[in-house]
Amino acid sequence: MNAADPIIQISHINKYFGSFKALDDVSLDVTLGEKVVVLGPSGSGKSTLLRAINRLETISSGSIIVDGHDLYGPDEDINRIRMELGMVFQSFNLFKHKTVLENLTLAPIKLKKMEKGRAEEMAYALLEKVGIRDRADHYPVQLSGGQQQRVAIARALAMEPKIMLFDEPTSALDPEMIGEVLEVMITLAHEGMTMVVVTHEMGFAREVADQVVFMDDGAIVEQASPDSFFDHPVHARTRLFLDQIL
């Protein structure tokens, strides 16, 4: 793989739920270190697109290549590819039966055969980074939504992924907790992480995105830099969406 090649290559993918077309001939390239923010009304297919990147959603046709690996290649191990793709969910999905620390160490210990002491050391460092080290021994249910989401980000980072996928990470949060999660994500972006983010946070998109993708009815309608996207949207549907949301 060439260094200039995109780390994620999505080519002409289609996805049907029964007769409903959730993704309509979507193509998208993401280069290493790039931050792509996907916007769009609900039901536009943006979450489906994101989930297709780590095959939580299977596609009906087309191809997705992540870091040189074809997601549907016959010789590819999807579990290995997923280790390179951290994912953060709208509903956090922390392991409820594990403490915060254990949430972070489970996968490195079991999948990377990392020694427990080292895994915990790394976990503490990550918890420090997301500002929640003092809650290491708590169970997820004892944390606020914002804290849970920050732990979820740290859990994904514990596998040292090359790419981070965010599926509406702040949509389930109370307004006063959105800031703390976005702050962590912005830090991560500044460190050079490759990120694909589905969100409704326009401020975040403007500040962080290299590329804004607007989807509607399962298709990519407009794709541009944040400045031209927000200030000079080309398509009528984009303008309508921005009028409604801003």
């Binding site: 780590n54 939580l56 579990n79 290995r80 997923r82 280790m83 793709l85 951290g86 994912m87 969910f89 509903s91 999905n93 922390l94 392991f95 409820k96 489970l106 996968a107 079991k110 999948l111 979820a152 859990r155 994904a156 596998m159």
Partner: peptide, 12 residues
């Protein structure tokens, strides 16, 4: 969601 989180980390 618990299953999806686990799969996304690379567990089979």
């Amino acid at each position: 969601g618990q299953t999806e989180a686990s799969l996304s980390l690379g567990f089979n």
